[in-house]
Design a protein around this nucleic acid. Structure first.
Ligand SMILES: [Mn+2]
Ligand SMILES: [Mn+2]
Ligand SMILES: [Zn+2]
Ligand SMILES: [Zn+2]
Lengths: 130, 130
DNA sequence: TATGATAACAGTAATCGTTACTATTATCAG
DNA sequence: CTGATAATAGTAACGATTACTGTTATCATA
């Protein structure tokens, strides 16, 4: 049985609507302003619980700690190798899933596709420099 | 300047030709039989060096520690959620890359796509049971 | 509205995979 | 051979995450 908690509320409030895929540490620092003695454990525990209830998504980064996403269904991400921004990619996931299925004898239940390179901002800045 | 070492030789020898994507720990245990006082640090250091020289590939697993692959170029993998096997998927990577590029203003330099579910063996065993 | 069961908490210790340090040894160009 | 230094074994430290523990908050039931 799940009980209400203001700590969890604050975590959800901080995460929802965002598109920047913050880390647990970032969320912790931000929620701490509102609830000064919340602990890291509480942040991790709740993020994990929310993910297991499919309320949020944990996005594993190839370049650092996990990022958290208010959009609960799996979707492709782009990781900027320059500024470490994590962006949503508007990609047809089913297309990628289908590609994987070709000739595979097992049962594919999902796929996680991540792209990396320079984000639009970093690419633009680099172009101006040269 | 790179110097020869029998530890590195042994690590390469153990890894090359394999398709099971062993962990550093697995390679360490195996190489230890040949070189009883090799240390974990040596294994990690050499695997990292080999990867940076594009001799091998580090495969980040969503379900545990990194796996190591004698095939140096990035390619899609399948992770079995039941037996934790890591399999190579015969997928056109360029197709996936192209999918990501649609409408993205940045510069995509690469993509890592991983699939998960039941490997052929586990699916077969499950079918027999039911 | 009290009571009791227990989910959730804060604080802290522990874990895991990996990397860094340090003194010693092995390799190899000159 | 010899000196410079890459690589080593052993061990400490690291960052991210999870587990533990005693306390507090929530909430169904009476
Ligand atoms: Mn996202
Ligand atoms: Mn592979
Ligand atoms: Zn960027
Ligand atoms: Zn399997």
């Amino acid at each position: 049985m799940i009980k209400h908690s203001k700590q969890r509320d604050a975590i959800i409030a901080r995460l929802s609507g965002r598109t920047d895929h913050p880390t647990a540490e970032t969320l912790y620092q931000e929620v701490k302003k509102e609830l000064p003695n919340i602990s890291m454990g509480t942040v991790y525990r709740n993020l994990k619980q929310l993910a297991s209830l499919d309320k949020i998504l944990i996005v594993r980064s190839p370049f650092g700690p996990d990022r958290y996403d208010p959009i609960p269904n799996q979707h492709p991400h782009f990781f900027c190798t320059n500024c470490f921004a994590v962006l949503d990619l508007d990609v047809d996931k089913n297309k990628i899933l289908a590609t994987g299925q070709e000739g595979f004898k097992g049962e594919i239940q999902g796929c996680i596709s991540s792209y990396h390179g320079l984000c639009p901002d970093c690419l633009e800045k680099l172009k101006i420099k040269n």
